[in-house]
Nucleic acid binder design. Sequence first.
DNA 1: TTGTATGCGTTATCAT
DNA 2: ATGATAACGCATACAA
Lengths: 337, 337
Amino acid sequence: MRPVTIKDVADTAGVSVATVSRVLSGHPSTSEVARAAVGGAAVKLGFRPNAQARSLRKTRTHVIGLVLPDVRNPFFADLAQAIEQRARDFDFLTLFGNANESVEQQDRYFDVMLSQRVDGLIAAPQGGLSNLREILDSGLPTVFVDRVVADTSVPSVTPDNASGIRQAVLHLSRRCHRRIGYIAGPQSTSTGRERLAAFREALAETGADNDPDLIFVGDFQSASGAAGARHLLGLSRPPTALLAADSLMSIGAVAVCNENGISIGRDIAFVAYDDIEAFALLNPALTVIAHDVNAMGRLSVDLLTRVIAGERPESVILPSRLIIRGSTPPLQRDAAR
Amino acid sequence: MRPVTIKDVADTAGVSVATVSRVLSGHPSTSEVARAAVGGAAVKLGFRPNAQARSLRKTRTHVIGLVLPDVRNPFFADLAQAIEQRARDFDFLTLFGNANESVEQQDRYFDVMLSQRVDGLIAAPQGGLSNLREILDSGLPTVFVDRVVADTSVPSVTPDNASGIRQAVLHLSRRCHRRIGYIAGPQSTSTGRERLAAFREALAETGADNDPDLIFVGDFQSASGAAGARHLLGLSRPPTALLAADSLMSIGAVAVCNENGISIGRDIAFVAYDDIEAFALLNPALTVIAHDVNAMGRLSVDLLTRVIAGERPESVILPSRLIIRGSTPPLQRDAAR
DNA sequence: TTGTATGCGTTATCAT
DNA sequence: ATGATAACGCATACAA
């Protein structure tokens, strides 16, 4: 079953390949009869232009690459959806790579994107500059989303990590919590680092306990959230409130609280990062640090199109918003601890 | 910044393009000196083979297409992850298309996959045969996953929908529920149809109320789950148990129960389709119809590789398992209704 | 308006 | 083992 080529169409339409090409790409210099003949032949033969051949000839592929750390993380799934939809507006196909929170897989996808000659790249990177060297050297238009790599001039769209964490800690502080357990993200990511730094600053600002034991560094996966909760709850002086740096770790942590019969909202306060739909269903519902994921996706595509056009757009920081729900009631008798 | 080609490498290595190609593709007929020279030049210039040109020349692209209905649905996100990881084992890159539960977008992605000349296609289709005509006619190796299209000879990997629903209804029946509200999936999908049919059969088998009002047809999105719950709870004779045909609709339905102060487990029983992590966190945790999503993903890739190899593998149906949790306690005083 | 011919970057055939 | 060259499918400069 040999694929149908432009030559086959030309033969059955009784014209040259050049005419077929012109008709199919909407070139103005085509006669009515040619359009009819070519159109008919193309439909009859079920012709599909070969994208490889086309983008070999032209310089552009009309494909953008998207490298994200983890599709199973609802935040990134939503982001992928938003980016893909927006890319569609610009007639870009999104080639999606899931790095699975692994630097090796991320690097492999960067390689693939280069080989596929994508017109641009949107990535939520991890690790340092080293593995991105080739991408940046190649001149491939690139935009970072959610996460960034320091010491690059790559435009980015990121959440206001510092503000989000600060709002959460201030809120807990107003609820009289002084021992706040923090399940941090991996320090190989900018979000992991920024959120942890913001947490420490907020601790200082509010005068809450700055106890190293109260900080557990996870890896943005639910298992590490569970491990973090186990560590924190097992402390001789356990925290009265928990704050986790992403949704997956929050899920793991909540599961551990449930297993141990520790009632969120009554025995312990809880704030999660990222507002995923299921968090509102919990009883009590979870207080979260929320973002406009859709805007984040749209903006990253918009920035990328401008980079492709040769501009150097400014990076964007999107506001974080604390949504207060039942998991962080005013601290009562627990304060005695 | 013109991309580096094999010609550039040949020039700086002082050999012909043929030799460069042979060295780079590991052809045995190469000398040690040639390997060294080419390798050095390639690294020095940061050469990336052009995948377009390569797959234009060869017949294979080493890319498989994956068309799924909705990345935001955790079931499909997990499935995408599993498929991608397995595809990697076969050195296949996964080109991902998100149909957004829309037939038009699905069709557009089918088109794209054809144009990109993917080596194979895995899809969870919706709608009828019509829009798949071209794919099947083209001879593109294809496998269906989760959903199927009737009257095709496309191998598939699907969950045992009938068994899953039947187990759930029998379980509720044993818990003495006789009025079970069902939030069905769209009848344009095989899963939507099969699950609804199974529900009706199970109703007959258990002798539970077969009241048309107790069936609400949604679209697999959370908003329709909410609408369904509102409809069912507003009935003059409301159900004592709710069953929703996917995780997103379950989320919407649970949210509505919460809003209306209807306590799941106490005021109403609830069974959700698909075992997503957050469902175990709810209080009480949700009873679910679960599947081995990872196996489903792996198997679909395995089947596809066999189709690509020219075989005609048998379709696979994976077992459904009912995981009983707190949301479906024995019916007590509510039975009076 | 249409056709001929060339080139995009790579692989493979055929000599050497 | 290596080099020259044709071919993959398409778009376009140039001629007609």
